[in-house]
Design a protein around this nucleic acid. Structure first.
Lengths: 108, 108
DNA sequence: TGTTTACTTAGCCCTTGCGCTAAGTGTTCT
DNA sequence: AGAACACTTAGCGCAAGGGCTAAGTAAACA
């Protein structure tokens, strides 16, 4: 369950505020690279690395037309990471439930 | 919202299958380092780096008693990353809703 | 007391992440 | 045609990630 290379990249992509900002912006709709880069005060080549990482990890898709590259959010990644976290929460809650039953037994 | 250094570490911690496995195991209850390391076929010092990173990121807490170090899952990290993803999903859904209304207008 | 156990420290290696500048390519505007 | 624009490529530098071995420490056991 945990040994899932795609999850490595999916989570790594979220481990940077520049990239999280890009995703937040893209969730509202497609944008060009320079639109996305505008708020970031970072050299373009540096910024492009983040775009490539987001693309590699599957969080976005991009296509070039003319001289501008347009980026679009890829929603199918959301359930993948969501599921892992849901499972984690489920395990945790199952455990606290068992603990509570145990305490109930002890104290009755 | 996205510029949150604690999120960097929280997500980075999840970007490795060894660490995800540790969290999965710990969600079921506390364990010693050697218990956690047993399934991993990795040298202990290497494994310990993962434990330290998990601790630094706030996903686990550890304490030593005698010669064994016990690790416990820290549930308070779950809502933090969960919230970010929930917000992301909300933005996306808001957008697709607007899109649908737009299409409805176009086709009626 | 001596040995095993459970880490811990120190140090080395290689790869990747994350930032930069300088210069290049192809498009679009004038 | 020439200039401006939107990337793109190449290359550099430093820090951190992710793995290893060898040797050290402190607790627990025989």
């Amino acid at each position: 369950m945990d040994n899932h290379p795609a999850l490595d990249d999916a989570f790594l992509a979220l481990a940077d505020s520049t990239r999280r900002s890009v995703l937040t912006r893209l969730a509202r709709g497609p944008a060009s690279v320079s639109e996305l880069a505008a708020p970031s005060s970072m050299a373009l080549p540096s910024f492009m690395k983040h775009i490539r990482l987001l693309e590699r990890s599957g969080w976005i898709r991009t296509h070039k037309s003319g001289r501008t590259r347009t980026c679009v959010f890829e929603p199918s990644k959301l359930p993948v990471v969501d599921d892992w976290l849901a499972q984690q929460r489920a395990l945790w809650e199952a455990r606290t439930d068992r603990l509570e039953r145990f305490i109930d037994l002890e104290t009755e």
